[in-house]
């Protein structure tokens, strides 16, 4: 393998979910492009990188110069949906079932990986609830994994003293499945059938 190809393959395969074989295929694909379309691909990535950031309130992905559309006044601000990662938000939006606020935790409790409460945006969640008396319900939509469930127990306990409705999406989502890849209808269904925890 030539050295530039070796390096490109290595770089691409460092991306999540891409093995060496796919990385090489992508490298060859890029090589086949005209300078113009290769430039377009690179430019779009650069723009994405430079112009994106996470909302300091909800943790969603937003454009640097624009207000967060998930925190806008048009959303239903009586309900807040807690998710693991920013990409989960897109899954919920696509389900068309939800118009409330979001809160990205940035992970789940996982002692095996050394992830504790302080590594997650839980303090920020507490602050948000304390500051916004209008929020009546928290929907815990972490993945239905052991870690996701443990995190939902944690959140439930955190707000024991508050008069909040705390629910968990459950029905329809088999234990161990991933929200990001969940079928839209199934996700909509599991939102409607959420249960108190």
């Amino acid at each position: 393998m030539s050295q530039p190809l070796e390096r490109a393959t290595e770089t691409i395969s460092s991306l999540p979910g891409i093995g060496r074989k796919s990385a090489q295929r992508i490298a060859f694909f890029l090589l086949k492009q005209s300078p113009k379309s290769f430039g377009d691909i690179m430019e779009s990535l650069r723009t994405f990188y430079e112009e994106s950031e996470y909302c300091s309130v909800c943790g969603a992905l937003k454009a640097r110069e624009e207000p967060c559309r998930f925190c806008s006044p048009g959303r239903n601000s009586t309900v807040l949906c807690v998710v693991e990662s920013p990409s989960d938000i897109f899954a919920f939006e696509a389900s068309g079932e939800y118009g409330g606020l979001y809160h990205v935790l940035g992970g789940v409790l996982s002692p095996l990986d050394g992830v504790g409460p302080t590594d997650l945006r839980l303090q920020e969640l507490k602050q948000r609830i304390d500051d916004n008396a209008g929020i009546e319900e928290i929907i815990v939509a972490t993945n239905p994994s052991v870690e996701g469930n443990a995190t939902s127990h944690y959140i439930k306990k955190m707000f024991d003293a508050n008069s909040l409705r705390i629910t968990r999406i459950a029905a329809g989502l088999p234990l161990g499945s991933q929200i990001e890849y969940a079928d839209q209808q199934m996700l909509a269904h599991s939102l409607r059938l959420r249960t108190e925890i």
Partner: peptide
Amino acid sequence: SGEKRADVFDAIESE
């Protein structure tokens, strides 16, 4: 790990 935070144990034990 020597972690003794009750809130973390509460969460794990509930599960």
